[in-house]
């Protein structure tokens, strides 16, 4: 999953060109009808990407949604997918983003 092999990490550390370095951007797909609002995904997300929805699903539960402005913050670690007891979350990691672009876009997004 990682772009850099674990054992290469220290070695690479100085050589990595952060401007060109890429990381995956996860797309969080939630099936709201399966969610029971246990909040595991929200609490265990290392990047704090998720929050409860304002809407409720057909059972009456708030389901996780991406926090506004955090659309690019998911690094596709899949913690939420794994910890979800309800089969409700899928992470798709097909896109990559450079750190430059992430910070740029991020700032830009805040500015706009």
């Amino acid at each position: 999953m990682a772009l850099i092999q674990q054992d290469e990490a220290w070695f690479m550390r100085r050589l990595v060109n952060l401007h060109k370095m890429k990381r995956p951007v996860g797309k969080i797909l939630v099936n709201p009808d399966l969610c029971k609002d246990c909040r595991f995904c929200i609490e265990f997300c290392p990047n704090n990407v998720l929050e409860e929805s304002k809407d409720v699903n057909f059972k009456g539960y708030h389901y996780p949604v991406v926090k506004p402005g955090k659309e690019l913050d998911c690094v596709a670690c899949r913690m939420c997918e794994k910890i979800c007891p309800e089969f409700a979350i899928t992470i798709i990691s097909e896109e990559y983003i450079t750190y430059d672009k992430y910070y740029g876009v991020s700032r830009h997004a805040h500015g706009g």
Partner: peptide, 25 residues
């Protein structure tokens, strides 16, 4: 069943989801 479970699609009785367990179980 969400895409993440394609590998075990064959093993889960999808027609019975969501399961009966409590939130947080």
């Amino acid at each position: 069943l969400p895409k993440a479970y394609d590998d075990i699609k064959d093993l889960i009785r999808i027609d019975r989801l969501p399961h009966i367990w409590c939130p947080g179980c």
